[in-house]
Design a protein around this nucleic acid. Structure first.
Length: 518
RNA sequence: GGGGCGGUAGCUCAGCCGGUCAGAGCAGCGGACUCAUAAUCCGUGGGUCGUGGGUUCAAGUCCCACCCGCCCUACCA
């Protein structure tokens, strides 16, 4: 199986925020999950540099556009380390030599298909917003943003025959050839298509774009509409337009082409983009996976940062303060599949302390401690004192063993089933369930009593627990790669002896109270 | 204005095609244990399932209207 996974490419007029981190982490989980199964995976992200908003932000900052864009793009690319992303490729639309030739080729392909045409375009244009408005969007004939009366601007623009592809688009989505997930979003797209698709403008006059962007092939007075340009990244990064084998490997010949997108750009990815591909004679994405938005402390996260959300929504600041694991865990465990989620530091801490420090961390710690205390760190069964099969037989008689074994056994299929539906929350909880069950098992099996009584079952119980810890470490990898490695290392004997137990997660909330005197 | 999504216990959320679906986790309260980062385990949940109608033998679960939040409606994940 060959899987191509992409995030959207954010425009870089400001620093990245937690909402984009969500998308990156979700994509990363998918990438790691498939990779673990031995499948060929390419995980790609990038930046959308050619947006007019970048130009405006650069002007406001008094910096040349390219310099401004470079500087901000850096902050997005730099998310890899703090979020521990296993990204394979990053494409930047203003700089990457693969991009412009690809966009031009896509343009020509659609032109050759007869889907591009020039037409007189007249619209209400707000200079302040640098955009056109439909009459219905205006309030009292004025720009809702600036309160000014928009100008009537007329020019020739290039249009794409979206209308021509409506039926095929509908069939692809309704029939599941292009899966829009979750289903709520698929219905939304189908309703939109059913409402009729109008051709859309795909160029802007170079003057209004302030000279920033990719010139329309053969029409230097126009630049390519930024969405056309940006969507093209999914292809151009694969060498569409510049050659090489990547296009065949990761697009035309791939088993899955998965786009992760925010709900705000659903239409572009589930309607415009597939239509462009149909026109160009290329396969459609197989999945468009839509996530909703994050708020911080009940407020919308503003992309311009600063004011409301501020640092509360800065993924880098959060990982620095609370660690990558806690941030990733919150994003994966607390964000529902449908519906916006509100981020607060309190919830991040509560989630991490409860499930990571007290749950997984403490479990591994207590298990390894007992193996050290009762068996000098020797992994039960490994020294040949008793065969593994014998241990399992003995353990099977202990209360709760069956449940624990079942949790371990079922974890992989539960993770796979959840991720097949892009339900990250359910997938993460399937891993967590193993640790939860193992903690329960300790209290049930009471190894300290077995040790005191010299009971044979001790080795079996410890072995079962260590297996559970390893299962957690193993399946946690796509979600928390760093923590998973620590769990795994803690459970791997060195010269026949497990490493001395060390806390795997520091508590983030108020420090633990000291033990009550005995 | 049009289209869409959400509104379920203090908090975060599960509830697919209508009939043990009124649930889970967290918090709170009570108890147990001592291997462990006082961590862990057990017990404990009367919330008009946003509001008002309707369909049905039966509705969070379908239909209509309305209220609240959010997204899209030609350049914000």
């Amino acid at each position: 199986m060959t899987v191509y996974i992409t995030t959207t490419i954010p425009y870089v007029n400001a620093r990245p925020h937690l909402g984009f981190a969500l998308e990156l982490v979700q994509a990363d989980v998918l990438a790691r999950f498939h990779r673990r199964r031995g499948e060929a995976v390419r995980f790609q992200t990038g930046t959308d540099d050619n947006s007019l908003k970048n130009v405006l932000a650069a002007e406001a900052a008094g910096v040349p556009v390219q310099e401004f864009v470079d500087r901000n793009a850096e902050a997005f690319v730099a998310l890899r380390e703090p979020l521990e992303l296993a990204v394979d490729d990053v494409i930047r639309t203003s700089r990457d030599p693969r991009h412009r030739p690809g966009v031009e080729r896509l343009w020509r392909a659609c032109a050759d298909a007869g889907d591009l045409y020039r037409e007189h375009y007249e619209g209400l244009y707000c200079v302040g917003c640098e955009q056109f408005y439909q009459p219905a969007e205006l309030t009292g004939g004025r720009c809702p943003e600036h309160g000014t009366e928009p100008q009537r601007v007329a020019e020739e623009n290039w249009f794409f025959r979206l209308s021509r592809h409506a039926d095929r688009l509908h069939d692809a989505i309704a029939g599941g050839r292009l899966r829009v997930e979750p289903a709520e979003r698929r219905n939304e797209v189908l309703a939109f298509i059913a409402g009729g698709l109008a051709d859309f403008s795909i160029s802007r006059s170079t003057a209004r774009a302030r000279g920033w962007g990719i010139p329309v092939p053969g029409d230097p007075g126009q630049v390519v509409y930024v969405w056309w340009d940006a969507l093209g990244n999914y292809l151009t990064a694969l060498g569409y337009g510049t050659g090489g084998d990547d296009l065949r490997r990761w697009w035309t010949g791939a088993d899955r082409r998965v786009h992760l997108v925010g709900k705000g750009v659903l239409r572009f990815h589930a309607v415009y983009w597939p239509a462009m591909l149909l026109s160009a004679g290329l396969p459609l994405p197989t999945h468009v996976v839509v996530h909703d938005y994050l708020t911080a402390n009940g407020r919308k996260i503003s992309k311009s940062g600063g004011n409301s959300g501020g640092d509360a929504a800065d993924p880098v600041a959060l990982t620095r303060a609370y660690g990558t694991d806690a941030v990733r865990w919150w994003l994966l465990r607390e964000v529902p599949r449908v519906g916006d989620a509100d981020f607060t530091v309190e919830r991040l801490i509560a989630r991490a302390d409860d499930e990571l420090a007290n749950g997984v961390g403490n479990l591994v710690n207590r298990v390894v401690s007992m193996i050290h205390r009762y068996r000098a760190g020797h992994v039960p069964g490994a020294a040949g004192a008793a065969g593994t099969a014998e241990l399992e037989r003995v353990a099977a008689g202990a209360p709760g063993t069956a449940e624990l074994e079942r949790a371990c056994r079922e974890a992989p299929e539960r993770v796979a089933a959840a991720l097949a539906e892009f339900d990250f929350r359910r997938a993460a909880s399937a891993v967590w369930a193993v640790a939860d069950e193992a903690n329960r098992y300790v209290n049930l099996a009471r190894p300290w009593e077995l040790a005191r009584d010299g009971d044979d079952a001790l080795d079996a119980v410890l072995a079962a627990l260590l297996r559970a810890c390893r299962t957690v470490g193993d399946h946690l990898e796509p979600f928390l790669p760093g923590a998973a490695a620590r769990v795994t290392a803690q459970c791997a004997p060195v010269d026949g002896v497990l490493p001395a137990p060390r806390p795997l997660f520091t508590r983030l909330g108020s420090p633990a109270r000291p033990p009550r005197p005995a």
